[in-house]
Each structure stands twice: as structure tokens, then as C-alpha cells.
Write a protein that binds this DNA or RNA. Structure first.
Lengths: 253, 253
DNA sequence: CGGACGGTTCGGTGCTCACCGAAATGTGAT
DNA sequence: ATCACATTTCGGTGAGCACCGAACCGTCCG
């Protein structure tokens, strides 16, 4: 009403948490985001099929997600590719997923059950390794003194040497200055796994040296014979971490 | 339909991201959560007034938020106190707020404008320091090599030593469990500040040593004379970070 | 024992939004 | 040029839900 009010300080900016959350509050959009956690770019059509909705519906969802800054898009010809906007987006999604309640979903086929089991065992999480394998790697590295608990996980000197021995030394500024390790609460196992720069570098290394192979269309990782040897020799990983569990647990398993 | 299907693997658990997000997707509920980021416990009535909705509406919202695990409640007499469920909840909310788009809100009085300015300068963010002061601390620590940038901020070796010199080395159970130098994108300044266990320890230290004082009913922090000296001596903070800006910027300032 | 107070329950109302199908647009291949 | 294909636009429909007021229920106080 007064001059002050109408003039220079009549408005202020506040983060619109509700608007952002509304983007994820829809089952279909949430499913799309979770799918994109594989770190890759999907076409609109692929996502439509994955989410089991009509292409027109998918278009609307993608428009919202892109406008909201969660997704980045790239148009190529008649295709529309989308991917997560960046690592922060991925991390926030993972955090949220860790906090979220669980929902029972029906499993309709044996193939689907196997798919889930494989996901549970080892999968990508944007740019690093998650699932039981990811958790086992973090645990083994801690146990061997490559990582230490000290205000969070940090890379020890022997950890840095271990990485160098693998040929991952480079990675930007000096090792002393950075403790490039982050952790990420795994939603399948509810335990920490390795993310951050080291997690990403390790993932790249494992892929390049044929320790693991990534399926083209899914987030599933499979450990190769070479990889089993490497993980055993270099980290002493137990067999449970190297093979998908042969026996399925019960519903509460 | 077959034995497999109907028996042990007919269902699996998946994080219900949409359900969690739906809790925050409402303006009123989001406002409630942001208010609770001060780390304190509020009564239902206080929140109703703050959010400007009927008590009955507030009850419904609180029921949902508590059931969803975001809030913890404590009934005492005829009062219902609620607070954020835990540090992870607070961290996730902050992360989300940092990612969220801005929304213009009207400011109706001079008092409200001053309140906003103070909040902008220094405030609590659950259990650590946010606002311009928080950002300046993080920036100064980075510049002095106590923190390093790498997928967010991480504590360096000299950073750990610096903390030890302050007497924050051990820092109790919260460090062991939370174990993070986390960063939180500040919503007033859109820049990183320090959260996680280290941020919390620093905040406690600053309070105990009378570097800062907290107002009882709000999230506003004021820097004491002692604090100004300490922040200057130990981190070289500039005056801009130690005093609230005397002049209000324009709407786009 | 009343009466004020904080919170809850319930029914009803209005709005938002996820969804689809059909038709339109624009790109790539023949 | 023509056809196939990926995506988009649009109108219409149905479900979900945030909100309120009024009545109700316990707790604290005089």
C-alpha cells in the first residue's frame, strides 16, 4: 500500500519446493526419472513404452520435466532424446529414493523376476556402480584401508596408491588436496556405496578393462570372468558379491 | 499363474519416489517443511497460522507428513509438536530447495522486509549455518584449501587439521553416522554452503564459543563481536559477510 | 464443575491434472 | 514426390485432493 511496499521491496524470491516436487509426484514421471538414472539418453518413444503410457502423454511429461530443469533434451531429426540434467540431479534423485517408502509391485513373469535379481546384484547409478556389487566394493575398500571413515569416507594414501596402480591416478588436482569420495545410499540394499569422482572413475575403469559389461537397454551390469578375477585379486570380494544370488528370497527376504 | 509366480516372487519392493514427492508437492505442506528446517518443534496451531490455513487442514497435512516419515511427532497434553524426522530429511529438503525454481512472493511490510534481509544474511538451516555467512564460510574454507571442489565440497587433510585445531576433531556420534561434508545449495544466494556433520559441528562450535547468537523464535543468526574477530582471524572473512547489508537492493538486486 | 482452548473428524465443494485418441507436424528413406 | 515413422497438439473425461466450516473430543485452568 505505501510507497515502500509498492516500490523496491514489494516482492522477494523463494524456492518453489512444491513445484519441483510436483514434477516427481506423478508415478509416470517418477518412473521416467528412475529409468534415466542409468545415465543414458532415451528417446520419447522408448520412455513411452517403458512407462506404458501413450506417446502423447509422454510428450506432456517430458515437456514438464525439461521445463522444470530436471531433464536435458537434445533433438536430433525426428527424435527427441532426454537425459538427466546433471550429476546433482542424479544425486538428489538417489537421495530421495533412499528416503522413500517401499511399494510392492507385482512381478508378472519369470523374466521380470530375473531382471530384478540382476538389478539387485549390480547396476549403474548414473556414473558409478550400485547394487550389491557397489556396496561390496565400498565395504572391501574400507576394510583394506583404501578408504577411511573420517568425516565421511576419504581416500587414504594407500587408497590413492591403489588407484594409481590401476592407472586411475590422473583425475585432476593432487590427491592430497582432494578426497574425491562420496557415498550414496543404495535403495536396493539400504547401504552405502561409492559415488563421486572415485566412484565414477572406478566405473569407467572397470568398463574399459572388461571387468564388467553393461547391457545396452538396461542398467544391469554383469561381472565378466576377468572381472571376477580382478575383484577377487585386488579387493578380495567374496563370491556372493560376484554372482547374482542363485536362490530368490521370499517376499520379506 | 505358475507356481513361481504365485509363490515366492510374486511381488518385489521398489522405492515409491512418487509417493514421497507427492507429500512435498503441495504448497502448504512444502511451506510447513521449510518452516521446520529451523530444526525446532512447532505445534500444529503455529503451523496453521504460519501456513495460513484452517486448523483442520493442518491436521490432515501433518497426518500425511508423519505417516510418510518426513516428520516426527510428539504429543504432549493437548498439544501436538512436530519436527523434521532427522538430519537426512533436512539435507534432502535443502538439496531439493536448491534445485527448485524461484517463485516471487509479495512482501507486505517493512518488518517483513527486514526479517528477510536478516534471513538472507545468516540463518540456521536445521543444524548448520546458511545464508550469506554460510556461503562465505564455505568459500573461504575452499580458498584456503580446507575444502576442495569435487562433485560438491570435500574436506581436505589440512581441513581436518584445521578442525582439530578448533577442537572439533572427534565430534561424537553424529559424525560417525552421517559422515559427510555435505553441501547445500543455498536458496537465498544460489551458492554452496557447508552442511553435513562438519557443518553441524562448526555451527555448534560457533554457538558455544559465542561467535553467533540465535534468535529464539526465528531462524535468524547474528554475528557477535567475538564472532567477527574469530571469523576474520581464522578464515579471513570480509566485512560484507559479517554484517547484514545495510541497504536493500531493488526487486532484482 | 464449568468454560476456554488445542486439536480432530466429517461431509461437501471446486479445481487441477493424468490420461487417451484422433488429427496434425515435421523428418528421413525410397 | 511419397510414404513411414517419431513426436506433438488438442479436446474431452474422470479421478484425486486441498480446502473449509461445523460439530466433536480431550486437556488445562479457574
Amino acid at each position: 500500500m505505501n510507497r515502500w511496499d509498492a516500490d523496491q521491496e514489494s516482492a522477494a524470491d523463494t524456492p518453489d519446493l512444491a513445484a519441483l516436487a510436483a514434477l516427481l509426484a506423478d508415478r509416470t514421471r517418477a518412473a521416467i526419472c528412475m529409468a534415466l538414472l542409468d545415465g543414458g539418453a532415451w528417446t520419447a518413444g522408448e520412455l513411452a513404452e517403458y512407462a506404458a503410457v501413450a506417446p502423447s502423454t509422454t510428450t506432456e511429461h517430458l515437456n514438464l520435466l525439461v521445463a522444470g530443469g530436471l531433464l536435458a533434451e537434445e533433438r536430433r531429426g525426428r527424435r527427441r532424446y532426454v537425459r538427466l540434467a546433471g550429476p546433482e540431479t542424479a544425486e538428489t534423485l538417489e537421495n530421495l529414493a533412499g528416503l522413500a517408502p517401499y511399494r510392492r509391485v507385482p512381478v508378472r513373469s519369470l523374466a521380470e523376476a530375473n531382471h530384478r535379481r540382476a538389478l539387485h546384484h549390480a547396476r549403474t547409478c548414473y556414473d558409478h556402480i550400485a547394487g550389491a556389487l557397489g556396496v561390496a566394493i565400498a565395504a572391501a575398500m574400507t576394510e583394506r584401508g583404501l578408504l577411511a571413515r573420517d568425516y565421511g569416507l576419504v581416500l587414504t594414501v594407500s587408497g590413492a596408491n591403489w588407484l594409481t596402480a590401476l592407472g586411475i591416478s590422473d583425475a585432476g588436482p593432487s590427491v592430497a588436496r582432494r578426497a574425491h569420495v562420496r557415498t550414496c545410499l543404495d535403495w536396493t540394499v539400504r547401504r552405502q556405496h561409492l559415488s563421486g569422482a572415485v566412484g565414477a572413475a572406478l566405473y569407467r575403469h572397470a568398463l574399459e578393462h572388461d571387468w564388467i559389461a553393461k547391457a545396452v537397454t538396461t542398467r544391469i551390469l554383469t561381472v565378466t570372468a576377468t572381472g571376477r578375477r580382478a575383484f577377487r585379486d585386488r579387493l578380495g570380494l567374496p563370491d556372493e558379491a560376484l554372482y547374482p544370488s542363485p536362490v530368490l528370497g521370499g517376499p520379506r527376504g
